[in-house]
């Protein structure tokens, strides 16, 4: 019987890393959105916060697109 422990370890490291990374970046984006509301209430424009939020969500979107690429076999099996 063959158990591929290193593949199992890879799955563990990759999935914990990606999940924690994406959720943390998304959380930073949400926090920036909340900061934008605070900025606007304080008379500011909130543009800086909005830019930060959009950057975070864009990073998440890249991971989303890569996930769809992995799910749809036509995109990577030729």
């Amino acid at each position: 019987m063959h158990i591929d422990w290193s593949a199992l370890g890879q799955v563990a490291v990759v999935s914990v890393g990606i999940a924690v990374g994406v959720v943390a970046i998304f959380a930073l984006g949400v926090r920036a959105l909340s900061q934008r509301e605070i900025d606007i209430e304080g008379g500011g424009s909130g543009t800086l916060s909005l830019t930060g939020a959009l950057l975070c969500f864009a990073a998440c979107a890249v991971v989303l697109l890569y996930s769809i690429y992995l799910i749809v076999p036509q995109l990577h099996h030729h």
Binding site: Q10, V11, V14, S15, V16, I18, A19, V22, V23, F26, S67, L70, I71
Partner: peptide, 10 residues
């Protein structure tokens, strides 16, 4: 997000 990461990486 965690479920997706585990399903896709495995």
């Amino acid at each position: 997000a965690s479920s997706t990461a585990v399903i896709l990486s495995s």
